[in-house]
Amino acid sequence: MISLDLTARLLHRDALILILDKPAGLPVHAGPKGGPNLSAMLGQLSFGLPKPPELAHRLDKDTSGCLVLGRHARPLRTLNALFAEGGVAKTYWAVVEGGPATDEGLIDMPIARRSPERGWWMKPAEDGLPAQTDFRVLGRAEGLTLLELKPRTGRTHQLRLHCAASGFPIVGDAIYGSAPREGGPVLHLHARAVSVPILPKKPPVEAQAPPPDHMEERLRALGYAGPISPTPAELLRPPVPPVVRRGLRTRREI
């Protein structure tokens, strides 16, 4: 079990929506093998309502940062429509290997599933779904670049694939980048900010999440001097199961 106080990670709370700083290492839904997941913990955020809030979108397991939830059915319908229509402005930070030749630009690269057997894995494809990402360089140092990424579309693994296929994979990406499957750095992709126009006649709800501590060393080298969000150690380094020592029989017992 993972002890995680979600109330301490709230970035915004009102009568309609919540915005949570999701830690890296925690999947939003249960996988085929089960295990801890955010959806199973959302009862902490009911705040007196008869049902817990529900996710309005998703983040990858190892992506940290702003995650929007609807507190009941009405705002959830609005949120689902906003995300489907691209009405929610999302800003990500990524530390990448190398970096783009220009300090800002647009990655316009259609995306399709790699194969039915690969689940969520994606590939660039001329006949795929349209996918566009604006990027801006925030810092460069020691062969790394800190990018601000603003997706215009919301395709699966869009930012990870766009960066890798453009020649600058995200640090810690074991699917599209150079990171090993085991023992490498955690994915350096963070949902930095979100702007949600939940009520049409009022300003959008905005929130910003401090980057996670597993990105701190590289962010500091790239010029970031702001606050850092702690990540529960057991999420990034799962506890090793205890070794069960079986008793050895003596010769007299044999």
Rank of each mutant, 00 (worst) to 15 (best):
residue 1 M to R: 02
residue 3 S to Y: 02
residue 3 S to M: 01
residue 4 L to N: 07
residue 4 L to W: 04
residue 5 D to R: 06
residue 7 T to L: 06
residue 8 A to I: 06
residue 8 A to D: 10
residue 9 R to E: 11
residue 12 H to K: 06
residue 12 H to G: 13
residue 16 L to D: 07
residue 18 L to C: 09
residue 20 L to Y: 04
residue 23 P to A: 08
residue 27 P to Q: 03
residue 30 A to D: 03
residue 33 K to Y: 10
residue 34 G to L: 11
residue 42 L to Q: 04
residue 42 L to K: 05
residue 47 F to S: 00
residue 47 F to A: 12
residue 49 L to G: 08
residue 51 K to M: 14
residue 54 E to A: 14
residue 60 D to R: 12
residue 62 D to S: 07
residue 69 L to V: 00
residue 69 L to I: 01
residue 73 A to Y: 00
residue 78 T to L: 02
residue 85 E to G: 03
residue 86 G to S: 08
residue 90 K to Q: 07
residue 95 V to I: 15
residue 95 V to G: 05
residue 97 E to L: 13
residue 99 G to Q: 11
residue 99 G to I: 07
residue 104 E to G: 06
residue 104 E to K: 09
residue 108 D to P: 08
residue 109 M to R: 13
residue 112 A to I: 00
residue 114 R to C: 03
residue 117 E to G: 13
residue 118 R to L: 15
residue 119 G to Y: 11
residue 122 M to T: 11
residue 122 M to I: 07
residue 125 A to C: 14
residue 125 A to L: 08
residue 128 G to P: 03
residue 135 F to P: 06
residue 136 R to P: 05
residue 136 R to I: 11
residue 140 R to E: 08
residue 140 R to V: 11
residue 143 G to P: 00
residue 144 L to T: 02
residue 146 L to S: 00
residue 149 L to I: 05
residue 152 R to F: 09
residue 155 R to I: 08
residue 157 H to G: 09
residue 160 R to F: 05
residue 160 R to Q: 05
residue 161 L to E: 01
residue 164 A to D: 09
residue 166 S to W: 07
residue 168 F to C: 11
residue 168 F to H: 14
residue 169 P to I: 14
residue 172 G to K: 02
residue 174 A to T: 03
residue 175 I to N: 14
residue 177 G to I: 05
residue 177 G to V: 09
residue 179 A to T: 12
residue 179 A to W: 08
residue 179 A to K: 10
residue 180 P to M: 15
residue 181 R to W: 14
residue 181 R to Q: 14
residue 183 G to I: 13
residue 183 G to S: 12
residue 184 G to Y: 06
residue 185 P to H: 08
residue 187 L to C: 05
residue 188 H to R: 09
residue 194 V to S: 01
residue 196 V to I: 04
residue 198 I to K: 00
residue 203 P to E: 00
residue 207 A to C: 07
residue 207 A to Q: 06
residue 213 D to T: 10
residue 215 M to I: 08
residue 218 R to I: 03
residue 221 A to I: 00
residue 223 G to I: 02
residue 223 G to H: 10
residue 225 A to H: 05
residue 227 P to G: 06
residue 229 S to W: 08
residue 239 P to N: 07
residue 241 P to M: 13
residue 244 V to W: 13
residue 249 R to G: 12
residue 250 T to Q: 12
residue 254 I to D: 12
